[in-house]
Design a binder for these strands. Structure first.
Length: 559
RNA sequence: UGUCCUGUGGUGUAACUGGCAACACGUCUGAUUCUGGAUCAGAAGAGUUUAGGUUCGACCCCUAACAGGACAACCA
């Protein structure tokens, strides 16, 4: 039992173990999760959160939560609050208080002056457009700014005036003096500070110049003594620049390691596109259960355990990837199968009358709460003459291998009796089936000596006399294409939106569901896992379908 | 017409650091089942982008090609 097969290390943990072997950071492991508070966290962030906090935990290290809040015009406390909530919900804690890049604004400013004095930074008067032109292109070298050779003293004076608010937005910037012909565009005298007369969500109006992300991120990691700065691939090109700052500033050097971000089929992961869906009203909000956001998944009924397990299973590497949602779905099913109490609920009701059952008689029947966990016990459900069954569970002219109710077929009503079809009643004008009639075998109630007779199928049902009504929101993939962003030239990704990603229905549920509270998770037998929506109230129960059960019959019918 | 990164079954990740490819999801069988769920047993599916090279031996090292991605915001 103790000899679990050794799980191989991902490439980041390999690096860490090597560093621990060589004593590079005195065997210290200190990571951080550094979001910008300008949007909600999504499942891609969850991968990063699990990686950073998980790595720290694995090596008895620390992991900071730090907000990289260097752009006051895009950031807001609303986002910092939601991010903190989501990280906590996922099951992670950070020591003491969360940190902010804005905590280090003074230090960062001093770093800038240090560079100026060293002759490695200068104040530039070029406009945005001009700076763009001077930068050259990816294949052509850039040109040096005419302001590049100002004296250190002049630069210092100008920079201090920038800070004291003597210039309007955009008038001047502070730039590093590196190399305008560098093949890496980011090394072509990048901007360090810009003038922004804007209210910052934490520092208020104290500053009117703000460091660029590139001038803040690496130094913040350095200030916090981070050992391994884990980030996504797009920052790989920035690494030489961060290293340049660290070297010129002569400060502690963390090690940056990049990994490939998560992509999931049938959804989008970019903040911009997610925002577009919210603002365009294509979803009800950031926490719409169809969204891949943490709050959306939470509302959908996903558990932190399932998400953490998912993050673990998908692994970490450097190559671009596109993970099949079926893996995420597998993770939540696996978790919920063990946890969720079962209920009987009928979503597309069809009236079923048992002809030989006593009128207005009600029987209390035992139902198992969770077959995976005997300790969950049993509950009573009512059985009566008139029931509802699922429309899909009856067919007048069934195809081969249809094991449900049909002329000539016997089926079991889950936890109750075996019934036999006797007839249907149809609407005179439309010809639609209004009710199905059957007889039951009184000796076959579950648990009775003669109840073991084999029947082809078992279907779920609900008593018409006392079942309760509820709203169910049936969710499907948000997009119709695996690669949701794949569109022809000139078309928009929103054209791939799935028009039937949400179907709202009224359903009948056994009365024991009456007390269901928001956030609670159930399995409606044979239908899937459902979670009580926060919009739910005593008077109006609302359930979100987290995911269907695996359905091999559905596969057969589709084929 | 640049620099950097990446290329292993349908998908994702492995391969004890050079000894002819494993695990998970998915797919398909069969068993079992009062959820066509769960569970159990099994199968198919890659010879590691290509071409050279080093080596007794290469997924692993070297070279080149090809393919994909990133980079030209006073965004992060």
């Amino acid at each position: 039992m103790e000899t679990k097969p050794e799980k191989s290390l991902n490439f980041i943990h390999e690096i860490i173990e090597e560093d621990n072997r060589t004593g590079k950071y005195e065997k210290r492991v200190h990571t951080r999760f550094p979001p910008e508070p300008n949007g909600y966290l999504h499942i891609g962030h969850a991968k990063s959160i699990c990686l950073n906090f998980g790595t720290a935990a694995k090596y008895n290290g620390k992991c900071n939560l730090r907000f990289d809040d260097t752009n006051p015009v895009k950031e807001d406390v609303e986002y910092v609050d939601s991010i903190k909530e989501d990280v906590r919900w996922l099951g992670f804690n950070w020591e003491g208080k969360e940190l902010y890049a804005s905590d280090y604004f003074e230090t960062l400013y001093e770093y800038a002056e240090f560079l100026i004095k060293k002759g490695k930074a200068f104040v530039c008067d070029l406009s945005v457009e001009e700076i763009g032109k001077y930068r050259g292109t990816v294949t052509q070298p850039g040109k040096e700014s005419p302001y590049r050779n100002r004296s250190a003293d002049e630069n210092l004076e100008l920079f201090r005036k920038m800070r004291s608010g003597e210039f309007p937005d955009g008038e001047k910037v502070l730039r590093a003096k590196i190399d305008m012909t560098h093949p890496n565009m980011l090394m072509r005298d990048p901007i360090l500070y810009r003038i922004l007369h804007a209210e910052h969500h934490r520092t208020g109006s104290k500053w009117c110049i703000y460091p660029m992300y590139d001038f803040a991120h690496g130094q913040c990691d350095s200030i916090e003594s981070i050992t391994h700065s884990i980030c996504t691939l797009e920052f790989e090109v920035h690494r030489p620049l961060y290293n340049w700052f660290i070297k010129e500033l002569e400060i502690y050097a963390p090690q940056q390691i990049e990994f490939a971000r998560l992509n999931l089929t049938y959804t989008v992961m970019s903040k911009r596109k997610l925002l577009e869906l919210v603002q365009g009203g294509f979803v009800s909000g950031w926490d719409d259960p169809r969204m891949p956001t943490i709050c959306g998944l939470r509302r959908r009924g996903y558990t932190p355990e399932a998400i953490r397990n998912f993050a673990d299973i998908i692994g970490v590497a450097k190559r671009d990837n596109m993970i099949d949602v079926s893996l995420l779905e597998h993770c939540i099913r696996e978790d919920l199968n063990k946890q969720a109490s079962r209920k009987l609920a009928v979503i597309n009701p069809l009236k079923l009358v048992i002809e030989n059952y006593k009128e207005s008689f009600i029987e209390e029947i035992d139902a198992v709460n969770n077959p995976e966990n005997p300790e969950a016990g049993t509950r009573k459900i009512s059985f009566s003459k008139v029931l509802y069954i699922e429309q899909e569970d009856f067919m007048e002219n069934p195809p081969a291998k249809f094991f449900r109710l049909a002329p000539g077929n016997e089926v079991r009503l889950k936890y109750a009796y075996i019934i036999k079809f006797t007839g249907v009643i149809k609407d005179d004008t439309t010809g639609k089936i209004k009710e199905v009639r059957c007889t039951y075998d009184p000796d076959t109630r579950s648990g009775m000596p003669l109840s073991n007779r084999k029947v082809k199928g078992t279907i779920h049902w609900v008593a018409a006399c006392n079942s309760i009504e509820a709203e169910v929101r049936l969710y499907e993939q948000l997009f119709t294409k695996e690669k949701s962003e794949e569109v022809e030239e000139g078309h928009d990704f929103k054209e791939n939106l799935n028009p039937s990603s949400l179907q709202v229905k009224r359903c009948f549920i056994e009365p024991s569901a009456k007390q269901a509270k928001p956030g609670e998770k159930y399995q409606f037998e044979r239908m899937g896992y459902f979670c009580v929506d926060p919009d739910s109230s005593k008077d109006k129960l609302i359930f979100n379908r987290t995911v269907t059960l695996k359905d091999s019959w559905a596969k057969i019918t589709k084929a």
